[in-house]
């Protein structure tokens, strides 16, 4: 292994671990203010949305909100299936399958 890559990887590992461990440890030492405590329940939904929306609306590093964007349709099909069937596997499988089909059609 090249030394510069070893250094890079160790640095990346260090900063990644620090971001992951920081609040686990900090929240033991510091009592969270009530306001922060109340805001915690919004974090999962907010983070999940930031992980999902860019992949759908910015598929190739450019904004694509046209009706020809197959990711939007696939996301709607996934969400619709999840709401109707309440079955996560059905939603995931139908969503991916619809994208594969839509890409050949559109």
């Amino acid at each position: 292994m090249e030394t510069k890559y070893v250094i890079l990887i160790l640095l990346m590992g260090l900063v990644t671990y620090l971001t992951r461990v920081s609040f686990f440890l900090l929240s033991r030492k510091v009592k969270l203010p009530d306001l922060v405590f109340r805001s915690l329940k919004y974090i999962p939904v907010a983070i999940l949305a930031t992980l999902i929306f860019p992949g759908i609306f910015v598929p190739n590093k450019e904004l694509d909100i046209a009706i020809t964007n197959p990711y939007i349709w696939a996301a709607l099909i996934t969400a619709g299936t999840l709401i109707i069937s309440k079955n996560s596997l059905a939603g995931i499988v139908l969503g991916i399958a619809s994208l594969v089909v839509l890409r050949t059609v559109i």
Binding site: V45, G55, T78, L89, G95
Partner: peptide
């Protein structure tokens, strides 16, 4: 089109 696997799986938790 498999890049949709991750958004789809995260959607299954988000929805």
């Amino acid at each position: 089109g498999l890049d949709f696997a991750m958004p789809a799986t995260f959607l299954s938790i988000l929805i």
